[in-house]
């Protein structure tokens, strides 16, 4: 059975002999092949090579195109600075005044360098892996993207002060997300990860008012294109779980602050939960301790739709033995 066939059986809810293992790797993966984070984020060849090597060495069950949050922002006109061992920096606030929202043009994902680079990454995975491993593409969720364009403080206050232009900006970010998701599915991605981390910082009323319908729409769009969706909202989303139930995400990342059993209860048996060991714990504890924590999660989630992972990105300084311990625990 290929990893893709195993994943398909997980989606169908069939009995798994091995719990799938799919941690989020970025800086770690780059370092693993002796490359910088800057190279990983700016060159799909490095990103793909790093992820495939990590998949092979740690027997991971999926590969991903996640890198940094600024691919779409770059396409919208933001200047991005790459640094060797840091997350890329967004140097430009694309939207400085509300009046600029109306004029904001949704860019072509095939002509912007950074969005095209991710699409080319998807094509490279398809060529190399020949559909045998699930490939996760990546887009920014509408609120995250709006915050990338306007600044997080400014956007969160704008939501409270000017609903109309907030809606307009969110709609443009939604359309951008849909277009970018389609391009990645066309290039061979099976799953689209949607990162909307800032949602953990808003209340459920604001989420329901501004984001929920847009999440539902983009997920439906991806489903219509034949893809699945992995929603990534790191941080504590306990208060959002009832709202997330109806948006139909196939996989929901659960960060370490959230009780996994509660998430299961709220999201139901049909959702694949992915998580949720604290990345600091994975980094700092011994391999034996990481194994024990992972084993405990795996045992508790046995028979359910579940992927073992960290709550969020595995850090660059995590010992390789600790990732191997997680893999071992999931068998």
């Amino acid at each position: 059975m290929t990893k893709k066939q195993l994943f398909d059986s997980l989606v169908r809810g069939e009995q798994q002999h091995t719990t799938p293992f799919s941690p989020i790797l970025m800086h770690f993966a780059a370092r693993h092949i002796g490359k910088t984070y800057g190279a990983f984020a700016s060159d799909h060849n490095v990103l793909v090579e790093a992820n495939i090597k990590a998949m092979e060495d740690f027997d991971m069950d999926m590969v991903s195109l996640i890198s940094d949050p600024y691919r779409e922002a770059s396409a919208f006109g933001a200047e991005i600075e790459f640094r060797d061992e840091e997350v890329p920096r967004c140097l430009t606030q694309v939207i400085k005044k509300a009046e600029e929202i109306e004029k904001l043009v949704i860019p072509d994902v095939y002509t912007s360098k950074r969005t095209l680079d991710r699409i080319q990454g998807a094509e490279a995975y398809s060529r190399i892996l020949k559909g045998k491993v699930p490939v996760i593409g990546w887009i920014e969720g509408p609120l995250a993207e709006a915050c990338n364009l306007m600044g997080i403080t400014e956007m969160l206050m704008h939501l409270m002060m000017d609903e109309q232009s907030s809606e307009m900006l969110l709609d443009k970010c939604l359309e951008m997300g849909k277009s970018f998701a389609k391009a990645q599915i066309d290039a061979g991605c099976h799953i689209i990860g949607m990162g909307d981390a800032v949602c953990s910082q808003i209340d459920s009323v604001t989420y329901d008012r501004f984001v929920r319908e847009r999440h539902t729409e983009i997920i439906q769009h991806i489903h219509d294109l034949g893809g699945l969706v992995k929603l990534h909202v790191c941080g504590n989303i306990t208060h959002l779980l009832p709202s997330l139930k109806g948006i139909n995400a196939d996989i929901v990342d659960i960060d370490w602050q959230v009780d996994l059993d509660n998430a299961r209860k709220k999201l139901g048996p049909g959702t694949i939960l992915c998580g949720n060991i604290n990345p600091v714990v994975i980094q700092d504890k011994s391999a034996e301790e990481v194994y024990a924590l992972s084993k405990d999660l795996v045992e508790k989630q046995k028979g359910q739709r579940y992927i073992l992972s960290g709550g969020c990105e595995v850090t660059v300084n995590t010992p390789a033995e600790n990732l191997l311990a997680m893999r071992k625990a999931s068998r």
Partner: peptide, 14 residues
């Protein structure tokens, strides 16, 4: 106590 979140606190601060 998670009764308000970041946007509301930002408005209070403003």
């Amino acid at each position: 106590e998670n009764k308000v979140f970041v946007p509301q606190v930002l408005m209070s601060a403003k």
